[in-house]
């Protein structure tokens, strides 16, 4: 197996001029993408989520779709629907925006639960069923959902069980003042981004997917380490519920991707530790009295208690 971590680095470097100050978010997004998971970005509007999604799609040479959620959004607005064609006398299926490789679902918490679950089902099954017919979604399939943490009126926050379906939850945050000055000077680069040449193609992306999932070695020592972390979340005094098995899988999948990104074909404890604050907090339920604490810090402190294999 050839580890093409340099290609990943190249993508990040190429996109860096369009995404000033969002490199960490970019890297994490790519990690989620290559872990075959879906990403939830919780952030205020206007910090460049869409730009990030478009950038990833363009650089990887993949198709891009966007869904802006509102409370009157219907499931068929996402999946698509069959429309009667007068000339042929048949119903024709018009694919919705979800039939793209990379789908940005903006402000997912504005959509009604019904629409949300249609979307989440599509994410989990990688297929949609409309009027009795099943349509496979394209491969790779990657959803970047965003939600606004501040606005609560007229929103339907995702329940924990649904949050578990996202492999990572990140936030972009405000850019540094230097980056922001650059942005102000140059203006939005969104238009330019649409016209960049792809760096990878679909086949290459699928190959990397395959390498990460299948050919990156994870030792029993690491699995033991991961199990200790899982056990710690389940027995922690801060938490009502610890990691699910799906959450445990997320730990190892993202760890493999992280190892690959670092040019390794085997996992080390740091691969898990580094991503723990993005993979764990949204999956566990904090006790009410700790809800207001910094959840990332609590998870970090849990992990700091656990001995590494070496």
């Amino acid at each position: 197996m050839e580890i093409r971590s340099d290609r990943i680095d190249y993508i990040i470097e190429s996109l860096s001029k369009y995404l000033q100050g969002k490199l960490r978010a970019l890297r994490l997004s790519l990690a989620a993408f290559f872990s075959k998971g879906h990403l939830l970005i919780e952030d205020l509007p206007g910090l460049g989520k869409t730009t990030l999604a478009i950038g990833i799609a363009k650089a990887l040479g993949l198709s891009f779709g966007r869904i802006q959620c509102t409370s009157d959004l219907l499931p068929t607005d996402i999946t698509g629907l069959s429309i009667y064609n007068k000339s042929t006398g048949e119903f024709e299926f018009h694919a919705g925006p979800i039939f793209n490789n990379i789908v940005l679902v903006d402000e997912i918490n504005r959509a009604t639960p019904k629409t949300q679950s249609a979307l989440l089902e599509a994410m989990g099954e990688e297929q949609v069923t409309i009027e009795g017919r099943t349509y496979k979604l394209p491969k790779p399939f990657f959803v970047i959902a965003t939600q606004n943490p501040v606005e609560h009126f007229g929103t339907f926050p995702l329940p924990e069980s649904q949050l578990d379906r996202f492999i990572m939850k990140i936030s972009i945050g405000y850019p540094s003042s230097d980056s922001e000055r650059e942005i102000l000077r140059g203006g939005s680069k969104r238009e330019e981004l649409y016209s960049i040449e792809p760096i990878m193609n679909r086949d290459e992306v699928l190959q990397i997917h395959e390498d990460i999932r299948g050919n990156t070695y994870i030792s029993d020592r690491i699995l033991d380490y991961a199990l200790k972390i899982i056990e710690a979340t389940r027995s922690s005094k801060y938490l009502n519920a610890g990691l699910s098995t799906r959450g445990a899988l997320a730990l190892t999948y993202t760890a493999k991707t992280n190892a690959y990104f670092h040019g390794r074909d085997f996992v080390i404890p740091e691969d898990i530790k580094e991503l723990a604050e993005y993979t764990i907090p949204h999956r566990v339920m904090f006790k009410e009295e700790y809800e207001n604490l910094n959840k990332k810090e609590i998870i970090k402190s849990l992990i700091e208690e656990i001995e590494v294999p070496a």
Binding site: Y217, S219, P309, A310
Partner: peptide, 9 residues
């Protein structure tokens, strides 16, 4: 060098 052996069992 160490990790190459240790974490690959």
């Amino acid at each position: 060098e160490f990790e190459e052996n240790f974490y690959k069992d």
